[in-house]
Amino acid sequence: MYSLPSLAAPCKVLEFDKDKCVGCNACVNTCPCDVMIPNPEPGEEPIVLYAEECWFCGGCVEECPHKALTLVPPAKQRLSTIWVRKSTGKEYRMGMKDPLPPNTRKPSGRT
């Protein structure tokens, strides 16, 4: 066990898919705020060093050539984005247990 400062909040702003991330650091070099640094171990996923400087623009997610990244909203925001299915009255939220299947409809536009 190490002596470490408390986890900064938000604790985890990005989820890396280990099966897809090849450690190319495209995300590191996209981030305008330099939130991440490359992992000293080549090929490994980057290290999120300054999570509290992430402003959640999603640029890193869009630039990832391997679609390995997910942007994780802070818990306070997962809990404040709530919806109700009109037909059943049931409540849902981002980050819920037993979620609904994804809605796969694409955004409008050709891009």
């Binding site: 997610v61 849902y92 981002m94 609904l100 994804p102 809605n103």
Partner: peptide
Amino acid sequence: YENLTKWGFD
């Protein structure tokens, strides 16, 4: 958009 739809928002 991506986060809401990923969690099933329709």
